[in-house]
Every structure is written in structure tokens, then in C-alpha cells.
Simulated assay, not measured.
Amino acid sequence: MFHPLRVSAVEQLTDDAVAITFAIPAELRETFRHTPGQHVALRRIVGGAEIRRTYSICTQATEAPDEPVVRVGVRLVEGGEFSTYALKELSVGDTVEVMEPMGRFSFEPRAGRFAAIVGGSGITPVLSIAATLLAREPDARFCLIRGDRTAASTMFLDEVADLKDRWPDRFQLVTVLSREEQQSGLPSGRLDQERLTGLLPELLPVADVDGWFLCGPFGLVQGAERALHGLGVARSRIHQEIFHVDDGNPTTAAPAGPGPASAAVPAHSTLTATLDGRSGTWPVRDGDSLLETVLRSRSDAPYACKGGVCGTCRAFLVSGEVRMDRNYALEPEETEAGYVLACQSHPLTPEVELDFDR
């Protein structure tokens, strides 16, 4: 559900990025009380067309009775309708429709050693995770390894520096710039699989890290995951969120759900879906995803990016078989349990049933 929220602050982070803070009315405080790592979807209507974009919350998570603080970082994307509006038009006092916090790249703070590898705007949810962890758990340590193009393009410099000042013994910061040499620290270059494989054991005891958080462009996250696997890190300790996917890097479009993997695409299919306790059945038009099928009759169907990245449209496949074109949001254990992304799913059987409420 979307709620109209007033913009209370717009802060310039870099030449191409801003931080937007929303005022939360008293009656919505519990609705917008987020867990570290979650995101919100923002909605805008332009020329009768709806635009939705997801942005991670960068602020420390609060607990009652403290007020929740919802602040997101927005980086300009070439041709991006919402990011252009946010950087060039949005002002304090404006109203934006904001969906309540969601997302599974979230973390309940606990004692232990944790680390993150981020690139660019991937710092946004990790900043919330690190700040909340260090504030709540005196026995926790956090290592942040971040890659950016240049110092001038680095988001949330002051916020990260504040973490270092407040917890110098428990917060370790490693910065790598790909297009600019630093006066001190590591040489410039990308944080790819080969470099991380050699670098990580020099920075911290890899085997002792209780949780790894990978966030940023697809290439960085994929390289970091492979490096960690090569260093013997169990998949259960790796959590990831993709911020940008190059269309040249598709995932394998494998069938998901019961039935033979070689099932032929049916000439006609129907979808039954349960959402907020109500069910309906509709024909699936040729080429349409299951999400598009639901949206024709249920405008309240959950979605944000429609690109297989955010996971907002996750649903349980009750029956039938589907093909997912791409999946950057669901963990292997989720797909094995029967969950699919409705925005990327197409029917492979005459009848398919989804449950958005599970």
C-alpha cells in the first residue's frame, strides 16, 4: 500500500545523487518502522502513466518509542524518469507516494563479525545495516569494503566517516577507487573476483565472518560471490542485492515448479491468484507475464521494478509450472521452496495458481 508522505529534506550527496528524507505522520510510524537493509517503492504519475522505483533506506533502524527515519539515496540514471525528477525537481514540502518498507536483504542485529562488499549506490542499505548493528550490539564488528569510481562520486562519505569516528575499534573501512588514485590505501582498480580473492584474506579472517552482505551492480556482486565461494564461505552466510543489471548478463531461464522441465508452452493458459485474501482467475495473454495478467484486474498487486531485481512481486507457486526469464532477487532456497517472481514468470502449463499472501 502506498501512502502520501511529505518530503522533509533533499540533500545533495554528489553531483549526480541526492538523499531524500520523508516526514512520517504519527499514525504511520509503525507502518514505516523498517528493519536494516529494507527498501521502499516510490510512485509518481506522469501523463497518466505510473512510474515506480525502489530505493533502499540508508538510516539506522529505530525501535519504539523512537520515531522511524525514512531516508533514501537516489542516483541519477541516464534517461531515468524518476531519478531525473528527484535530482532536478523534487523539493522540500512536495508529496511523494511511498510504499511501506519491504525486502529480504534485511538483517536482525546480533553479536559477531560481519562484512560487506558494495559498489556505488549499493552502500545505501549496507549503511543502515552497519549503523544499526554497531549501535545495538557492543560485541559486533563490521568491515565495509566499498568500490567507487572517484572520491567525488562516492555517496554518503560523511555518514561512513561518522561510523569510523564513533566505533574506531569495531568498524573497518576499505575504499577502492576504479578511476582515481588515492594518496593512501589500496591501488585503484575494480573489485573483481580475482582481486577480491587475494584481497579479502589480507583484510580479515574470512572463515570467522558470520555474514557477508553484497550489494551493487550485477558484475560486482557476482564476482564477490564467486570469490567468497572460492575462499570456502558457505552460501548460507552470503546475502546479496543487485542494484543494476546489464541486459547483456541474463540469468538462465529455467522452469520453476512441479512438472517436467521440457514442458511445451501451452496455446492458452489461465492464472488463478490469491492476493489479500481474495482470489480470481484470468486468461494469460500471449507474451504477458503473470504479474501483468493480475494487474489487468487487480491494480493492488505488489510490484516495483518489473525487472526481476527487487523481489516485491514474489509469490508462491501453488500449482502448475512456470518459466522465469530472470531472477536476481530470490535465493536458491526460496525457488526450491516454490517461490517465483511474478513479473518474470510465464506459464508452461494450461493452468497456474499463485498465492501472493504466503
Rank of each mutant, 00 (worst) to 15 (best):
G147Q: 06
P138F: 07
R170E: 05
L133I: 09
S128V: 08
W167Y: 12
P187Y: 07
L133Y: 12
F156E: 03
E180K: 05
S178G: 11
S121Y: 10
S121D: 14
D158V: 07
T124M: 07
F156V: 01
G122T: 12
A131D: 09
I145A: 00
A131M: 05
T124I: 13
Q183E: 15
I129F: 03
V126R: 00
Q172C: 14
G120F: 09
V174W: 13
D148E: 15
A151V: 15
R149N: 02
L186R: 02
L157T: 12
A161Y: 14
R141G: 08
E137L: 01
C143Y: 13
R166F: 10
S184P: 01
T154W: 04
L133W: 11
A152F: 13
F156C: 00
F142W: 10
P125V: 11
D165C: 09
L177M: 11
L133H: 03
G147T: 12
L177D: 01
P187G: 06
D148Q: 02
D169N: 13
W167A: 08
M155S: 11
E181N: 06
D165Q: 10
R149E: 15
Q182I: 07
G189V: 06
I129L: 05
D139L: 13
I145Y: 01
R179W: 09
L177K: 05
D139Q: 15
L134T: 07
A135M: 10
V126L: 05
E180F: 12
D162A: 15
C143W: 15
D165I: 14
D148F: 14
G147V: 10
I145E: 09
R179K: 10
G147N: 09
R179Y: 05
A135L: 01
K164Q: 12
R190G: 06
V176A: 04
T132F: 01
A135T: 08
A130V: 14
I123R: 00
T132G: 02
T150G: 05
P125W: 14
R166P: 03
V160Y: 07
E180A: 10
T124Y: 06
S178H: 10
P187R: 06
R170S: 03
R170C: 08
R141I: 09
T124E: 09
V126Q: 00
D148R: 01
A151D: 12
R149T: 12
R190T: 07
A152S: 13
R170K: 01
L157Q: 15
R149P: 02
M155A: 15
D148G: 05
R166H: 04
K164L: 11
R136P: 04
A140M: 11
D162H: 08
S128R: 07
I145D: 04
D148C: 15
P187Q: 04
T150S: 11
L157R: 13
L127V: 07
L133R: 03
R190A: 05
G120Q: 02
V174F: 09
A152Y: 00
